[in-house]
Design a binder for these strands. Structure first.
Lengths: 190, 190
DNA sequence: TAATAAATATGACTGGCAGTCGAGATTGCC
DNA sequence: GGCAATCTCGACTGCCAGTCATATTTATTA
């Protein structure tokens, strides 16, 4: 979809609030009304973007499930997914987070996606627990929540700096996250 | 300032985008123009709110410096500060995060405050390292960043649910954060 | 190919809101 | 009481998201 691509590009370049719907339709060389045939509102573009993001994560999760990999490696792979493509632009990331917090409509979509994401993570964790890779006393849902919080916090802070690539930030955070998980296991052993 | 209190209350009740400047001035029983004598823009209210928040953290940090407490306890106190007052309303929290990501002006203020906050945390960490409470190999700035990320992520996710109080969420996250710090120390011992 | 129906595109229009500005009220001061 | 500095006000402007009636394209059938 041309409109979609143009919109994202402009958002990334100028920042979401500094781009009007007409800017987008002009760039895409269509009439203004056309925009609203494809997106309910201006923010909706970001909702769609988020959906695509989750799609990638979901895909990565399912392929990871096939190949027998360690929990660590699967989760690691999942979080790095988020660093791809749309995560390349700090201003896009800001726009996405900002608008899903602000707009009722988009928030609904995102909440749902987050929930699904957490379920996916929890499944991976559960599988790891069965295989004895991580402590089975841990509450898989809490672990999933912690991971999601860590990733969101990381993206948020990164989106303000944008200095090194998002990948590097996520890498650090994931290491940090994992250390906490490992230690939880050790504590149980006492 | 009456305007300020009314603004926050309305934001919390109806959500930032659903409150107009006129709603605020009406509630405060002043003319519309008066609002702009006190706040450059509508978002600015949130910038001010954030500044107040940081003020509390700063205060807590300095009083904690007096009384000799462990790093753990000081940091713990600092993050819990954020759960107070304005952090009581999920929709206020959403508005704050959202608007400082969206609006150029507010973002500047917040970036500065975040930076300052990180310096404060790093100082506390450094003090703890001198006293041997945490591993001195750790990069204090990275630790500060991790903590800030953790807290922001937590507030973000909480602001979507709002179910248990923010305090509880932060409590969990801080525990998680601390475990990772402890383990980092253990790794160095090998 | 012509006639008809379905799907898409379009841009003038509306309503609503953030932010401005010049005029008027209020306060403090000599 | 008169002058200045400060604060208040709300009518006004410009902008923009989102609507809608109309026009245009595409698909369908005979």
């Amino acid at each position: 979809m041309r409109l979609f691509r143009c919109a994202l590009q402009l958002f990334a370049e100028r920042g979401f609030p500094n781009v009007t719907v007409e800017d987008i339709t002009e760039a895409a060389d269509v009439g203004k009304g056309t925009f609203f045939n494809y997106f309910e509102t201006k923010d909706h573009v970001l909702g769609v973007m988020a959906e695509i993001q989750l799609g990638k994560v979901r895909e990565a999760a399912s392929t990871a499930k096939q190949t027998k990999r360690t929990v660590h490696s699967v989760l690691h792979r999942l979080v790095l997914c988020l660093a791809e493509e749309p995560g390349r632009s700090p201003s896009l990331a800001r726009a996405m987070i900002s608008s899903f917090l602000a707009s009722e409509g988009v928030r609904g979509m995102i909440e749902h996606q987050m929930h699904e994401g957490r379920k996916m993570i929890a499944e991976v964790v559960a599988a790891g627990q069965e295989r004895g890779e991580i402590d089975s006393q841990l509450d898989k849902d809490k672990v999933a929540l912690q991971l999601q919080q860590a990733v969101m916090g990381t993206v948020l802070l990164w989106s303000l700096h944008g200095k090194p690539a998002l990948e590097a930030w996520i890498e650090d955070s994931f290491q940090h996250f994992w250390r906490a998980i490992v230690l939880s296991g050790q504590e149980q052993e006492l």
